[in-house]
C-alpha cells in the first residue's frame, strides 16, 4: 500500500519528462555550444561599461520607486485582507482581488504597461508597483493575522476607536515585519527589473538583450558583470538593514 504514492509519483514524473521533450542527449550535444558562448564573452568589452552602469542605476531606480509606492499602497489593502481586523464584507472581496492580481507576474504587467504608456522606465515602474502592491498586501495581511491579540484587547478595553486600536495595538507589532518584507521585495524586484528591459520597460535588460541580438558577446559579458555586481550590492545593503530591524 505504501508503494502506491511512489508509483504514482514515478508515472507522473515520466509523463512530465515525455511531455516537455526533456532530452539529456540534446543537452549534452548543446554543451560545446554553451562553452563557445562563454568563450566568446572573453575578454569582456569594457568600453560599454559607462552605459551599462547608467542602465544599472536606472534599474535600481525602477525597483526603488516601484517598491516604495507599492509599500504604501499595500498598507490599506493589507489591513482589509486580514481576517482578524477586517469585517467579512471587506475581507473576502479583498482576498479575491489580491489572489487575482498576484497570479500575474511583473514581466506580464510590463508588457501591458509598455503598450499603454510607451517604452522606457516608466512602464517598468508601473509593472513593479502592480505586482508588488498585491504581493506585499498579502504578506502584510499574514503578519497582521499572526499578531498577539492581547495588546489589541487591552487597547480596545481603554475605549479606543477602531483606528486607534489598529494604530496602537496592531501597528507596533507588525511594523518591523512590514519593513523587513519591503526590503525583501526590493531585493527580488531588482532581479525582476533586470529583465524588464527585454520587453522595452527600461533598465539594464535592454542592453543585455540588444548585445545578445547583435551577437556582441563581449559587450553582453560586461552588462552581465554589472548586473551581478548591482544585485550583490543591493542584497548586501538590504540584508544589513533587515538584520537591524529584528
Amino acid at each position: 500500500m505504501t508503494r502506491a504514492p511512489l508509483f504514482v509519483a514515478v508515472v507522473v514524473l515520466a509523463w512530465l519528462v515525455w511531455d516537455t521533450s526533456a532530452d539529456p542527449v540534446a543537452l549534452a550535444r548543446g554543451l560545446p555550444w554553451m562553452f563557445e558562448f562563454f568563450r566568446r564573452m572573453f575578454p569582456p568589452d569594457f568600453s560599454v561599461l559607462p552605459s551599462a552602469a547608467v542602465a544599472a542605476v536606472r534599474t535600481v531606480e525602477i525597483a526603488l520607486l516601484g517598491t516604495t509606492v507599492a509599500a504604501v499602497l499595500a498598507l490599506p489593502l493589507g489591513f482589509v485582507s486580514a481576517r482578524n481586523v477586517a469585517a467579512p464584507a471587506l475581507f473576502y472581496p479583498a482576498r479575491g482581488v489580491l489572489n487575482l492580481f498576484r497570479s500575474v507576474d511583473t514581466l506580464v504587467y510590463a508588457l501591458v504597461f509598455v503598450a499603454a504608456v510607451g517604452l522606457g522606465p516608466f512602464p517598468g515602474v508601473l509593472a513593479v508597483v502592480a505586482y508588488t502592491t498585491t504581493s506585499l498586501a498579502k504578506l502584510y495581511s499574514e503578519a497582521i493575522e499572526g499578531i498577539d491579540p492581547g495588546p489589541v484587547d487591552a487597547i480596545t478595553a481603554t475605549g479606543a476607536t477602531r483606528l486607534q486600536v489598529l494604530r496602537f495595538g496592531v501597528l507596533p507589532q507588525v511594523l518591523p515585519l512590514f519593513l523587513s518584507y519591503v526590503l525583501y521585495r526590493l531585493e527580488t524586484n531588482i532581479r525582476a527589473a533586470t529583465v524588464l528591459g527585454f520587453v522595452g520597460a527600461g533598465g539594464i535588460g535592454f542592453y543585455l538583450q540588444t548585445y545578445l541580438r547583435m551577437i556582441d558577446y563581449s559587450a553582453a559579458a560586461t552588462v552581465l558583470l554589472v548586473t551581478v555586481a548591482m544585485v550583490m550590492i543591493v542584497d548586501f545593503v538590504s540584508s544589513k538593514l533587515r538584520a537591524r530591524l529584528i
Partner: peptide, 11 residues
C-alpha cells in the same frame, strides 16, 4: 482592565 499576560505593546 488588567490581564494575566499584561498585554503591553512590547516594542
Amino acid at each position: 482592565m488588567v490581564f494575566q499576560q499584561f498585554n503591553l505593546v512590547r516594542r
